[in-house]
């Protein structure tokens, strides 16, 4: 573990951090995050229909709704259009006490924004031709309407900026507690770790262009900052326990930190591994939609391990040494002078 604090290893880690954060900030300024999961720009084809389709069957066991959707999807494929999302719509109307189903229905297909718009027109014409030729009454009389439209999302930014302020204040309050309980040097090192992890996580997303939901960068930065405080607290707890141990009485901050790191790295790795396992299982066992949340979340869990085991101690040791020296100077100077004065008085 002492190796982790060596100049060579530290230089590599710092160079990596600085490069990722700087590149991430530049790319964020130029291009922002990749909010592709939110589908900020897309083409939407909507097929709406009445009760005949919703309740009807074209043959035994084949619902008119499924049949119609299948035919439409065949037409999209013939036109070379591939949808990225399919949403079933259930018509509702106000029944006086709330929305109740009204037997209308629909399906919404989302296509990427760079799809050929003329193909949508051709697909619409093909679907309308199919409907005109369709003999099954459940579909033919189903009042089917096909429309397509470009859609652009209006990003709601309030949650994002409130979240950023919240994370910063939350981390500062936690670090203030850490400072009171463990000393200024622990607090400052924790602050550096926290800021680093939140920035590193956000910068990593900006740099790698991983497709995200709009809430994701802040949520993951929050998770990283929170985990960073927790993992760094584990290091601080072990350091303080070691310092209180009479067996370590003669050791300086650097030696104590090395000793603390060699006994706590397992806990830090175990805690981080447990968090990562939770995230991985949540994403992998759960459905496809949540899988897109897993990879970014693992980054948020990985960054605090590095900062609590490498960056934090590296910031902490010089600060602690300085504070210890100042305290010793103060104590030495004061007590030495006092003792000398007392001796002189007695004499």
């Amino acid at each position: 573990m002492t190796k982790l604090r060596s100049n060579k290893v530290f230089a590599i880690f710092v160079a990596l951090s600085v490069a990722v954060i700087a590149a991430g900030i530049i790319l964020y300024a130029l291009m922002g995050f990749n909010y592709a999961q939110d589908k900020p720009k897309a083409y939407v084809v909507e097929i709406s229909y009445g009760a005949t389709v919703v309740n009807g069957e074209v043959s035994d066991g084949v619902s008119a709704e499924d049949y119609l959707q299948e035919k439409c999807e065949e037409i999209f494929e013939q036109q070379g259009l591939r949808y990225t999302d399919k949403t079933s719509l259930e018509g509702v109307s106000d029944s006086g006490s709330g929305f109740s189903p009204n037997e209308n229905g629909g399906v919404r297909y989302t296509f990427s924004a760079d799809s050929d718009v003329e193909k949508f027109g051709a697909a619409q014409t093909a679907v309308e031709a199919f409907l005109a030729a369709e003999t099954a009454p459940a579909v033919a009389n189903g009042m089917v309407v096909v429309s397509y439209a470009p859609v652009s999302n209006l990003a709601l930014t309030k949650a994002a900026w409130r979240g950023a302020i919240a994370i910063a204040v939350g981390a500062i309050v936690a670090l203030a507690y850490l400072t009171i309980r463990f000393g200024v040097s622990c607090g400052v090192a924790g602050l550096v770790c926290c800021a680093h992890d939140a920035l590193f996580t956000a910068a990593f997303f900006a740099l790698t262009r991983i497709p995200l939901f709009s809430f994701a960068p802040l949520l993951y930065a929050a998770v990283a900052a929170l985990l960073s405080v927790i993992l760094w607290t584990i290091v601080c707890i072990v350091y303080r326990t070691g310092k209180k141990d009479p067996a370590n009485a003669g050791l300086n901050a650097s030696a104590l930190t090395d000793k603390a790191l060699s006994s706590c790295w397992k806990y830090v790795l175990c805690a981080a591994a447990a968090v990562m396992a939770v995230i991985a299982v949540l994403g992998l066992v759960a459905v496809a939609g949540t899988r897109s949340l897993v990879l970014p979340a693992l980054i948020a869990a990985l960054a605090p391990v590095y900062s609590s085991l490498v960056l934090g101690p590296r910031v902490f040791v010089p600060l602690r040494t300085k504070f210890d020296r100042r305290r010793a100077d103060k104590k030495g100077g004061y007590f030495a002078r006092k003792k000398k004065a007392e001796t002189q008085t007695k004499e």
Binding site: A166, I167, G170, V173, F182, L226
Partner: peptide
């Protein structure tokens, strides 16, 4: 301390953040 720090950071974040 570990639990207090986690709870403190979380509740302060809650009071400011939304959604």
């Amino acid at each position: 301390d570990l639990h207090i720090i986690a709870a403190l950071a979380a509740f302060v974040t809650y009071f400011i953040a939304t959604t």
